[in-house]
């Protein structure tokens, strides 16, 4: 048990974190280096302004697409916000980041806050998964990687939930091992949308900002 935990929080963790960091950097740099058009039309508006506008605007669905998109967007926010909150402010996570990575600590959630955030995150993720396997379009277009991303993230969260009592080394080791796998796989997976969404919205925003439209 101790060996497993030592591996999962030690060498395997550092390896996974390195692959994560290098992989993300490689992917994003490489992507940007693919280049753009050789000439741009005379702008009517600001590309930079358009980029910022579109990045922010697409956080909220346009009213005309509701209620159809409503459940999807709500579940998405429940998941993402719940996950960010518990990832960043749950006591065991802050302890881990603080001790092992950053050397600083910050205020944490009370236990109940951790649990409520997790419940939102689970509810959101499960609803999103339910839609991915039942909506005809999503069924048709989802790649194995999209399903794997959902499942792996879910297992990371589930193993964390199972280890909540923080009384059994095996459960903590299981959680850490899954975290390591998640980190390792991250740069090669659809999870990269975490960063690429900024580029995607940004490029569209810049293109149409140049044309004087906020899309």
């Amino acid at each position: 048990m101790n060996t497993w935990l030592w591996l999962a929080e030690g060498p395997l963790f550092w390896l996974s974190l390195s692959v994560f960091g290098l992989g993300v950097a490689w992917k994003l740099t490489g992507l940007l280096l693919l280049g753009g058009p050789r000439a741009q039309p005379t702008p009517r508006g600001s590309p930079a302004g358009g980029a910022v506008y579109t990045i922010l605007r697409h956080f909220v669905p346009r009213r005309v697409f509701l209620p159809g998109a409503g459940l999807h967007v709500l579940a998405g926010y429940a998941f993402h916000l719940g996950l960010f909150i518990l990832l960043g402010f749950a006591a065991p996570h802050v302890a881990f980041f603080g001790e092992r990575l950053l050397g600083v600590s910050w205020p944490t959630l009370p236990q109940w806050g951790f649990i409520v955030a997790a419940e939102f995150a689970f509810a959101g993720l499960i609803i999103l998964w339910a839609m991915r396997i039942s909506e005809p379009i999503q069924k048709l277009v989802s790649r194995p990687a999209d399903h794997a991303a959902t499942w792996l993230t879910f297992l990371v969260m589930l193993s964390g939930c199972l280890a909540l009592e923080e009384a059994h080394v095996s459960l903590r080791a299981l959680h850490m091992t899954l975290v390591d796998a998640w980190l390792f796989w991250f740069p090669f997976s659809p999870l990269m949308h975490t960063f690429t969404f900024l580029f995607s919205r940004g490029f569209t925003g810049a293109t149409y900002g140049r044309r004087g439209v906020g899309l």
């Binding site: 508006g45 302004g49 358009g50 506008y53 346009r62 009213r63 005309v64 697409f65 509701l66 209620p67 159809g68 998109a69 409503g70 459940l71 149409y208 900002g209 004087g212 439209v213 906020g214 899309l215």
Partner: peptide, 26 residues
Amino acid sequence: PGFAIPVCAGGRKSMNWPNGELHGRL
């Protein structure tokens, strides 16, 4: 704000939702 101006957004009921249950669900 910014570039595109008076836009009138209409509500379009989704194909898949029966009548008027949106508010109940929200």
